[in-house]
Write a protein that binds this DNA or RNA. Structure first.
Lengths: 256, 256
DNA sequence: CGGAAATTTGAGCAATTTCAACATGGGTGG
DNA sequence: CCACCCATGTTGAAATTGCTCAAATTTCCG
């Protein structure tokens, strides 16, 4: 199924330069990374499926990987789209049963470094910096998901889409004055928890927010805080319903 | 504003028994906890507000604390409701600027142990087990929020509410055959990202799922997998659109 | 140039929100 | 003990928003 991979130093360098390992010495990195291999995946090939045992930490060296879940009602919802330099299955390592609860599939074709988790866990033990950076990354992921919950609850699909486009542009380092979408629209819809039709209908509405989309070509016109305009317009004054923090009387806990 | 607190050993014990510190010796726990104090908060008193500098790790010793955010459009969305034994501001410690991005407010009155973050960070450095448990907890929080995103995208408000009630019942150790709601309905609505009216209208629909709510009294009739019935009914077969995982040809990365 | 996949569009429907009116229910002060 | 009040919750009706289904286009590839 999968293609044989010629060793490609560029791809290995991606793995060497991820921030998770940035405090390791070159030797430490090498001895960890040589435990893993870089694998090549064809378009739509699965890295793992829900219920599979968790064996690796994955580092995307090239291409894109979609991580998604089939929800109870048979829908496919994309948890995340991992791009070059992204590391995934960080969360799962700490979760209970050692089984994947998502599916991962290559979009187009992808090259992925797979690092056995037991080796990775060893390095977590050995190197405090790795553990610390992992925790940061988990915290950031949790905060991101929290914000997504809020967005889904309070924003219209057009607003969510606008934010996603800006964010995508920034995180891929694209030119805000004009770029082409790095993903298919159906993938974006799945990532944003909306239907393709909804996304399609949201696109024209983005003009009001200074985003023009034609086909897969996107350009931001109002380059600064245009995204905020919509939000601010929708904002209403509302009274603060709670007391401000007060001086607290501190009481030592007589431990021991 | 806040009441003076008589030292209460029960409350201190709550803090001593949280799982985050469960691998520490009694001495280690004591020397850490004596750095913090237990504070008393009146109903609706704030522990901190958005934008405040992050100073403490909080451990709820008694009562309830609502953690929430004012969204851009002026709505109030509850991130989490912390109950006795819960620890919060774990995530924030790892995030950038050292400022709170949520508000925390006592519901009714609450007793909260506040542990200076620099002291807590020291113990993270000193005790691997604390760091490990913190990471687990972050991972679990992230997974929970991910599931919430999915629920909001795929489930009806009645289903979401049903899940929340079951979960609440379990996590508070209440009797599923009949208990009263530990929170006000408006708080629940805010927690679930829906309007109070929507929640109110969803309540009668829960009967179909074997949950009876009258006033603030809840009882589960169909005690087993009743919650799944609705989901399964809504489920439809849909074809698998991707390839199963293939054998991969492994290629050693010639690191170094 | 086909044909399949991806996207767009239309029309009707379902769920949630909004706004407004109404009910309930503790608690307080007389 | 009761009348009253304010916070909380419920209900109705209209308006939004997103979803479903179906058909029409467009795009992508060989």
């Amino acid at each position: 199924m999968s293609q044989r991979l010629l060793i490609n130093m560029d791809q290995l360098d991606i793995a060497r330069n991820i921030s998770l390992f940035s405090d390791l010495t070159e030797n430490e990195k090498d001895s960890l990374l040589k435990e893993g291999g870089i694998y090549s995946y064809r378009s739509k090939e699965c890295l793992f499926m829900e219920g599979d045992p968790i064996k690796f930490l994955y580092i995307v060296c090239d291409g894109l990987v979609q991580e998604f879940r089939q929800t109870a009602d048979g829908r496919e919802l994309t948890v995340n789209i991992h791009k070059k330099g992204d590391v995934f299955c960080k969360t799962e390592i700490f979760l209970n049963e050692g089984l994947h609860n998502t599916n991962a599939m290559a979009i187009d074709s992808a090259y992925v470094m797979e690092l056995p988790i037991d080796k990775f866990k060893e390095s977590l033990q050995k190197h405090k910096s790795v553990a610390q950076r992992l925790a940061s990354s988990l915290a950031r992921f949790a905060a991101m998901k929290q914000i997504e919950v809020e967005q889904q609850a309070t924003m219209t699909s057009a607003q969510i889409l606008a934010l996603f486009l800006r964010q995508t542009c920034a995180s891929h380092g694209l030119d805000p004055r004009g770029f082409s979408l790095p993903y298919k629209k159906s993938l974006i819809a799945s990532r944003l928890g909306m239907k393709l039709e909804t996304l399609s209908r949201a696109l024209p509405k983005l003009k009001e927010q200074g985003i023009t989309v034609k086909g897969s070509h996107v350009s931001f016109t109002d380059l600064k805080a245009s995204g905020l305009a919509g939000l601010q317009a929708a904002a209403r004054g509302n009274a603060v319903k709670f007391f401000p923090p007060s001086r607290k009387i501190r009481e030592m806990a007589h431990a021991s």
